[in-house]
C-alpha cells in the first residue's frame, strides 16, 4: 500500500518535472543551452524502481524535450534501485548528487552526456522546491531567471505530449 502511494507521488512529480523542463527550456537560458548541447533525439529514461513510475524523454529540436513511449529503449537510463529511493529524490529529501553518493540509482549509457541532464534537473529543482528546501539539498542554488510560480503556472498549462 505504502509503495503504491509512493509510486503515485513519483509519477506526479515526474509529470511536473517533464512539464517544467519544457517551460524552462523557454524561460531559462542555462537550461536551453544545456539541452541544445544534447545531440538531436538523445533519449533519457528515469525509472523509479522496479515496477515504478517512468519518465522517458528525448531531445526535440524546437520544444527542448518530448516524451518517449515508456517501452521505447533510451540511450541513457537512470534506474533507481527502489521506489523508496526514487521518492527520496523526487520529494526533495535528497539531491541527485546525494542519491549518486548513496548508490540509490544505476546508470546505463554515457556518463559524460548524463552530467548535462543532471544539471538540467538541478536547475529545475531550484524552481520547483522552495528556496529553503533547495538550499538544503543542492550544493549551490542557481539563481532563478524567472519566478517559480510562473514556472508552475506555465507547467499546468503545458500540453504534456
Amino acid at each position: 500500500m505504502k509503495k503504491e502511494l509512493l509510486n503515485h507521488v513519483n509519477a506526479l512529480v515526474l509529470a511536473v518535472l517533464y512539464r517544467s523542463l519544457r517551460v524552462l527550456y523557454r524561460d531559462d537560458s542555462r537550461v536551453r543551452e544545456e539541452i541544445d548541447g544534447w545531440k538531436n533525439n538523445l533519449s533519457f529514461k528515469l525509472v523509479c524502481g522496479p515496477g515504478g513510475a517512468v519518465l522517458a524523454l528525448r531531445r526535440s529540436e524546437h520544444a527542448g524535450v518530448r516524451k518517449l513511449q515508456r517501452a521505447q529503449r533510451a540511450e541513457i537510463t537512470m534506474r533507481f534501485k527502489s521506489v523508496e529511493g526514487a521518492f527520496q529524490v523526487l520529494s526533495g529529501q535528497k539531491s541527485i548528487a546525494d542519491a549518486y553518493a548513496e548508490h540509490l540509482f544505476t546508470l546505463e549509457g554515457d556518463i559524460y552526456q548524463t552530467m548535462s541532464f543532471v544539471r538540467v534537473v538541478e536547475y529545475a529543482e531550484a524552481y520547483l522546491f522552495p528556496r529553503i528546501w533547495s538550499r538544503r539539498i543542492l550544493r549551490e542554488v542557481p539563481e532563478k531567471q524567472t519566478g517559480s510560480l510562473r514556472v508552475y503556472a506555465e507547467a499546468l498549462l503545458e500540453h504534456a505530449r
Binding site: I96, A97, Y100, A101, I111, Y112, M115, R139, E140
Partner: peptide, 13 residues
C-alpha cells in the same frame, strides 16, 4: 570537465 562523472560528488558545486 563539467561532464566528467567526478564533478557530481565534488563537495562544492
Amino acid at each position: 570537465a563539467l561532464n566528467d562523472g567526478a564533478v557530481i560528488v565534488n563537495p562544492r558545486q
